[in-house]
Amino acid sequence: MNYARVLRGVVGAAGFLAAAELVGMSGLVDDRFLPRMSTVLAGAAGLVTDQDFLADAGATLTVWLLGLLLTVAVAVPAGLLLGTLPRAEAAVRPLIEFLRPIPSVAVIPLAILLFSDNLNLKLAVIVYASSWPVLINTIYGLKDVDPLAKETLRSFGFAPLPVLARVALPSAAPFIATGIRVASGIAIILAISAELMAGGSEGIGIYITEAASGSRVDLMLAATLWAGLFGVVADSVMVALERRLFRWHHVRTGGAR
């Protein structure tokens, strides 16, 4: 059953690659603009040992990971604070509602003016954009805590802070985790957009810009292939972690995400 599914997936992916190769062979498109699939795959294989590419990819990953960590460090405590103080949350909510719809990439030009250091610039825009889902999910998760569980602990004489640590935080954790997973997708978009807009010396966005100026479409696609594969791996690791850590939550909600 599962074996058959995996097999079908492999067949589907292989079929797509073969179809792309056939289109390339047919000569319908100029292969300077759209190189053959085999060329792209060969390019992707070559990138594994390409020092420039590895340095660029590593730089983007570092920024992404640092940005995500900073986001968690900023947004989770803020969310916990607002989630436990309903009055503060009610006051701040309109501000959040006004700031959140600003398309995150629109702040990049502003950030370019403010930060002379490329790393700080990227981190700033990543934290700004990725914080929203973490913040909102943390607040939401705290609201979702079973009041009965809180009452129970309180009736046993626990002070508010231990109640927060023992009941609220664990039951909000799955929501926070989902927020972080969403944020990780946003963070990578912002990291690359900032690289493309602000320039700089390293990053996968820079690699692609350089490939573009050298008209090496094959290398652009090869780098994109790795970026996508990395995204798939990162996402599945996070989903698997969530499943493992919060099994009880998935049982309770019927596996709904």
Binding site: I189, L196, T224, G231
Partner: peptide, 11 residues
């Protein structure tokens, strides 16, 4: 869906 869309703009 895992490919960051801005990466494809130059392409």
């Amino acid at each position: 869906r895992a490919v960051p869309p801005p990466l494809l703009v130059p392409f």
